[in-house]
Amino acid sequence: MAGGWAKDGAVQDQIDSTVEDGINEARRHLERQGPSLAICEACEAPIPLARQQAVPGVRLCIECQAEADRHQRQHSNYNRRASKDSQLR
């Protein structure tokens, strides 16, 4: 039973949300299957043949992939458990 500001079931909601995030991340990686693209789907720049061969299912040029990775790191550093611990006690 949760106390304080947290509603009943808050811990399970937190667990469910974390599992859902993990499933969505795995699905994003599955989309990389298949043939590599010759043109970046974000900026339409050509993707070098060496990159197409090195990364199966590549969809983005190096610059766009670096930006996507930077964006992913910013959002993946969020510690859901630590941020809600004070609410769950």
Score class of each variant (00 low, 15 high):
1 M>L: 12
1 M>Y: 09
3 G>R: 06
3 G>F: 14
3 G>P: 12
4 G>T: 12
4 G>S: 12
5 W>L: 15
5 W>V: 15
5 W>I: 13
6 A>M: 09
7 K>L: 14
9 G>E: 03
10 A>C: 08
10 A>W: 00
10 A>F: 03
11 V>K: 13
11 V>F: 11
12 Q>S: 09
12 Q>V: 11
12 Q>E: 15
14 Q>E: 06
14 Q>R: 10
15 I>V: 15
16 D>W: 00
18 T>F: 00
18 T>P: 01
19 V>L: 06
19 V>T: 01
22 G>Q: 02
22 G>D: 03
23 I>W: 00
25 E>M: 02
25 E>N: 05
25 E>A: 13
26 A>K: 00
27 R>V: 11
27 R>N: 12
28 R>W: 01
28 R>T: 10
30 L>W: 02
32 R>A: 08
32 R>D: 13
32 R>S: 09
32 R>Y: 12
33 Q>D: 05
33 Q>M: 07
33 Q>I: 07
33 Q>V: 06
33 Q>Y: 09
34 G>P: 00
34 G>R: 04
35 P>Q: 11
35 P>S: 13
36 S>M: 03
36 S>C: 04
37 L>Y: 14
37 L>K: 12
38 A>G: 12
38 A>M: 05
40 C>E: 01
40 C>F: 02
41 E>V: 11
41 E>N: 08
43 C>K: 02
43 C>M: 03
44 E>F: 08
44 E>A: 12
45 A>I: 08
46 P>H: 04
47 I>W: 00
48 P>Q: 06
48 P>N: 01
49 L>G: 02
49 L>V: 14
49 L>D: 10
50 A>P: 02
50 A>G: 05
50 A>N: 10
51 R>K: 05
52 Q>I: 04
53 Q>M: 06
53 Q>N: 11
54 A>H: 03
54 A>F: 02
55 V>P: 01
55 V>A: 03
56 P>A: 07
57 G>M: 03
57 G>E: 00
59 R>W: 08
60 L>K: 04
60 L>R: 14
61 C>P: 05
62 I>H: 10
62 I>K: 11
63 E>I: 08
63 E>R: 09
63 E>L: 11
63 E>C: 01
64 C>N: 01
65 Q>N: 11
66 A>D: 14
66 A>F: 09
67 E>Y: 06
67 E>C: 09
71 H>G: 04
72 Q>S: 12
72 Q>R: 15
74 Q>K: 07
76 S>C: 05
77 N>G: 15
78 Y>M: 04
79 N>D: 15
79 N>C: 03
80 R>L: 09
80 R>F: 01
80 R>Q: 06
81 R>S: 10
81 R>K: 11
81 R>V: 15
82 A>Y: 06
83 S>R: 12
84 K>P: 01
84 K>V: 09
85 D>T: 14
86 S>A: 14
86 S>C: 07
86 S>G: 13
87 Q>L: 15
87 Q>D: 14
87 Q>C: 07
89 R>F: 13
89 R>G: 15
89 R>Q: 13
